[in-house]
């Protein structure tokens, strides 16, 4: 009897500690899992460069790229170019995304507006926006407007299409409920239609972010006098392969950063959605 009584608490506390230990380990594992492969790749790359298997004029070692990055950072050139590119990207996203959101909502709500504009928009959508680069250079030269125009055009469509889809697929039963419960059109939009369309709008935003970087880098590579794409092109002229590689790595990091920010935004705005609730409380 006494043995059993004595044993029980020890056993349970031991099990608890064990479970907690495992929980910590598994949560750490989950957090770093995504970074295991990139770190391994970089390590292999460094090793192959050190033993001379990869020639430095083809692909410099990661350490060389890091040194080049440090130098560029110290001279302020890198920060300047990153700042210029980020600002262009965001400006294009705000302008193009804003118009896409507004038109998506308008066409989702109004049959009339959709009848008159949707066909035109679908036609423009099927023109690859990067094909407009020659025309854009003729119009705007290589000034800021050219980049803004291209990025805005690129991000417009994913946001427009997903907003339109989101607004049109809001549960009609909820809209009917809002009407009979006396919501004004504005309240109905704010409390029923917009939150209902939000998951779809976020899908559009994530597509748009990818297109945003792609468009900007292509535009900067072809016609610019500052920015990350310009930095890479300049480096190519002087055969500075390490700077070219540095620029490419920065694109990867910026893409990841944009994705993390969107996920965070999604989790904050869509707390109510069962897909974003922690199972422990669900």
């Amino acid at each position: 009897m006494s043995l059993a009584e004595l044993d029980a608490p020890v056993a349970t506390s031991g099990k608890k500690a064990d479970a907690r230990g495992r929980l910590d380990l598994s949560s750490v594992e989950a957090r770093i899992a995504g970074w295991v492969l990139p770190v391994l790749l970089v390590a292999a790359w460094e090793y192959l460069s050190r033993i001379g298997y990869i020639a430095p004029n083809v692909l410099p070692a990661p350490s060389a790229v890091a040194r080049a990055g440090w130098q560029a950072l110290k001279s302020g050139e890198l920060a300047h170019n990153m700042g210029v590119s980020t600002l262009r990207a965001l400006a294009g996203l705000v302008v193009g995304g804003g118009i896409g959101l507004a038109l998506g909502i308008a066409n989702g709500l109004s049959e009339l507006s959709r009848r008159y504009t949707d066909t035109t928009l679908q036609m423009i959508r099927n023109v690859p926006h990067l094909a407009l680069i020659p025309l854009v250079i003729l119009w705007f030269g290589i000034e800021e407007e050219a980049k803004l125009f291209l990025v805005a055009l690129g991000v417009f469509f994913p946001i427009y299409i997903n907003t339109l889809h989101g607004v049109r697929t809001v549960d009609p039963q909820l809209i009917e409920m809002g009407r009979v419960y006396g919501m004004s059109p504005f309240t109905l939009f704010r409390r029923v239609i917009l939150p209902g369309a939000l998951p779809s709008i976020f899908v559009g935003l994530r597509f748009a972010l990818g297109i945003m970087w792609l468009t900007l880098i292509v535009a900067e590579t072809i016609a610019a006098s500052s920015g990350l794409g310009y930095m890479a092109m300049q480096a190519r002229e002087f055969l500075l392969v390490d700077i070219v590689v540095l620029a490419i790595l920065i694109y990867a990091l910026l893409g990841k950063l944009a994705d993390v920010l969107t996920r965070w935004l999604e989790r904050t705005c869509l707390q109510w959605h069962p897909a974003f609730q922690t199972p422990a409380h669900g």
Partner: peptide
């Protein structure tokens, strides 16, 4: 018989999932 004097309850709850 405006909205407040006359209410309907549907077969489905029709709650706003985001509130």
């Amino acid at each position: 018989h405006d909205g407040e004097a006359l209410r309907i309850m549907f077969q489905e709850p029709r709650l706003l999932p985001w509130e």
